[in-house]
């Protein structure tokens, strides 16, 4: 076991040199790199925490906004529902009114049509009845409808009750004989004579023609009237036709 002191000295120098070299090439750079990496990691973590905080606050902000929006939307929805309900009511009312108006209009039109129809029917009926009566009378009794009407009229004049007869006798008013057709002179003379016979009055007699009477003849004076015409029969026909039409429309509806 020997110690070479020269080698020992050289080894001490070598060792100290190695310490210096390794400090320079190994420990320094490695520790520096680790420190820098640690710093970078710390920076990253701090940065991440910062971001997380920002994200958290942003999230909370948006959550609050979302809650407010939800609340608002609920309110708006309720408002919209109320508005819609009101609008619906208005529209329903409007529609009902419209329908009622249309129905009234339609009913009015229908009534008008009925009346027009009846009017036409009446005219046609009168014409048919007149033609028929004229034809029947002509064929059976060798007479005219007008003549027969006047006969009936004169017959009624002769059968007046006493009260009416007395009133007619005492009147000073002009007596109007209104007929639906033109009377010839003979007929007028005959009527004049019959009136004179029955009433025995010297009052004036005027003859007039009126289409209002439809088919008939009438004596009018001082609020009294003696007549024969088809008005009554036609009214009866009207009533029957109306009843039939009403039944038809009800069954259609």
């Amino acid at each position: 076991m020997q110690i070479d002191w020269l080698t020992v000295s050289a080894q001490i120098v070598n060792f100290l040199l190695l310490v210096w070299l390794l400090k320079h090439f190994l420990y320094g750079p490695v520790i520096d790199a680790m420190d820098r990496r640690q710093q970078a990691i710390a920076d990253n973590i701090a940065d991440a925490q910062q971001r997380e905080q920002t994200a958290q606050s942003t999230m909370e902000k948006y959550e609050r906004k979302y809650a407010a929006l939800e609340k608002d939307s609920a309110t708006h929805l309720q408002q919209a529902e109320a508005d819609a309900q009101q609008q619906r009511q208005q529209l329903m009312t409007q529609a009902r009114e419209d329908v009622k108006q249309q129905r009234d209009l339609w009913q009015h039109g229908l009534k008008q049509e009925q009346q027009d129809y009846l009017k036409n029917l009446r005219k046609t009926s009168v014409k048919v009845i007149q033609d028929t009566g004229r034809k029947v009378l002509g064929e059976l009794a060798d007479t005219t409808l007008e003549k027969q009407i006047i006969e009936v009229f004169l017959l009624r004049l002769n059968k007046l009750d006493d009260t009416v007869l007395q009133t007619l006798k005492e009147t000073t008013e002009v007596m109007n004989v209104i007929s639906a057709f033109e009377l010839d002179t003979d007929t007028k003379q005959k009527i004049r004579q019959s009136i004179g016979d029955v009433i025995n009055n010297s009052t004036e007699i005027e003859f007039k023609v009126s289409s209002d009477l439809l088919c008939g003849i009438s004596l009018q004076t001082d609020g009294y009237q003696v007549d024969w015409n088809m008005q009554g029969h036609l009214q009866q026909l009207d009533q029957q036709l109306l009843a039939t039409l009403d039944r038809e429309s009800e069954s259609n509806a």
Binding site: T7, A10, Q11, N14, L17, L18, L21, L22, F25, L26, P29, V30, D32, A33, R36, R37, A40
Partner: peptide, 24 residues
């Protein structure tokens, strides 16, 4: 001494080779 220098060269050379391109 000779083998001490060998070890020193290995250690210092290796360290230099590795630490010249350290990354963080």
């Amino acid at each position: 001494l000779a083998f001490t220098w060998v070890v020193m060269i290995l250690l210092v050379g290796g360290s230099w080779l590795i630490t010249r391109k350290l990354t963080i």
